[in-house]
Design a protein around this nucleic acid. Structure first.
Lengths: 243, 243
DNA sequence: AGTGGTTCAATGGTCCAACCAATTTCTGCA
DNA sequence: TGCAGAAATTGGTTGGACCATTGAACCACT
């Protein structure tokens, strides 16, 4: 009854190229930053046209797996393995204020869960690493009077890593990148993040105490203050003209 | 100090092609399913080579925005607008049991937040729609003795929609798709989801009562039962050989 | 009317050969 | 030795050609 007749796969040249390339990367144990063979060499070795190689590489480039530098070569940007799943997301209209708030809601969800998982599974080493980042950030906050966004980000990344689930870092990093492409200095609010500052330590305390629900609650508070900051900034300067 | 000197744009043919194409789609008000101009026509109109057009379209295809059918044409798969942000995610090794558990942790994070937002912002119409989906699902559960995964999914989608943030539905839908490409019947556990069934109504009750924290807690419970089911299934049948 | 086969134009997929533009490497002069 | 310019390397683009698939039009036969 189910009429299971999936369409047959007759040709898939570029897909085959990608699979072969993934196998090559695996065999050669290539890591991020390393250079992979020339398009011309790949075309010759794989017995396909250079055009086909280019289409395949264009796919990977679009997925952020690879970076092409004219005159230099093609370089790996991330670890690739043959058993990889791709989840391209297109966020329609994410570059206005409402879009920013929407991405922040996603971040709130992930941040809270990551903190909770971290409190459950964080080992001594991971917790020590988080504390190290926290100290660095607090020091930067003191000396530079608030401008500590870079160190702030590193603290959060340490939390994501310690959650034991790399997806958290992957997703939020992708959002962070988008975020900063359009909002280098979020809304021009100079003391951005002041209000959220103390919560970094309370989050860490709850994680160190292996208290998942406490960590979750503190993370929610932190994001709430960031949202308030943003709303304040939006109220101050009209930003309907920013894009 | 900031040295704001954006690199000049000497060459970006395919990017320009995509921008032009996005503008075209907008102007012609093309929606999903509609066919867009031939590669040859685009090449001629835009005064670029057909190969360049193809590279640009390959990008969009990789992002899932467009579908190419040989002999037929190129068709839109999703709404596309010039101000769109792309967030390609590659989930390394997402097709084994550990990968499944990792995606489930992401879903737990988003599910809880969506339920909470829903309780805060859900209007009468949205809540009624959720209840309708819930009734359908419970009816299917009774008549077909448990096999209600499709209706189950529709219920959750209604919650995501009512959250007021389309990103929830986008992200979880993308994961759901991947999920099902490799795990058509999750782990072969036939009565999958039995344990999570009652929580659907408790979640709805908390949403209808506009109790965000209660909704969040019930959503967390639901995902916890799903995780237990999965662990049970994994313990029963050795699945290290599944891919 | 409907079924199946054939033809044919349209369209995406692949290939080739050449050239352009950016980068890197080599070379020879000061 | 240092460095400017030439040469080789490499990704980016072009134009043209051919193949494979699709879908519509047409036709013969039942």
């Amino acid at each position: 009854m189910t009429d299971f007749l999936p369409p047959i796969q007759t040709t898939a040249r570029d897909d085959a190229v990608l699979k072969a390339l993934a196998g090559f990367v695996r065999q050669e144990a290539l890591g991020p930053g390393e250079k992979l063979p020339t398009e011309r060499i790949l075309a010759e070795r794989l017995k396909v046209s250079r055009n086909t190689v280019r289409e395949a590489l264009t796919r990977w480039e679009g997925l952020g797996l690879v970076e092409r530098r004219q005159g230099s070569g093609t370089y790996l940007k991330a670890a690739v393995s043959p058993d990889m799943l791709h989840m391209p997301l297109t966020l329609s209209g994410g570059n206005d204020f409402a879009g920013l708030m929407r991405t922040l809601e996603i971040r709130r969800a992930l941040e809270a869960e990551a903190a909770a998982l971290c409190a459950i599974r964080g080992g001594k080493a991971e917790i020590a690493e988080i504390e190290r980042k926290l100290d660095i950030m607090e020091e930067a906050f003191r000396t530079r009077a608030g401008m500590s966004s870079e160190e702030d980000w590193e603290f959060h990344q340490a939390v994501y890593r310690a959650s034991g689930n790399p997806l958290f870092e992957q997703i939020i990093s992708a959002m962070y990148e988008l975020f900063h492409r359009f909002w280098e200095h979020p809304l021009g609010v100079r003391d951005f993040g002041h209000a959220s500052f103390p919560y970094h330590r309370t989050i860490f305390d709850r994680i160190a105490a292996h208290d998942p629900e406490g960590a979750r609650a503190e993370a929610l508070k932190l994001i709430a203050t960031v949202e308030d900051d943003l709303k304040r900034g939006a109220a101050n300067l009209k930003l309907s003209d920013r894009r």
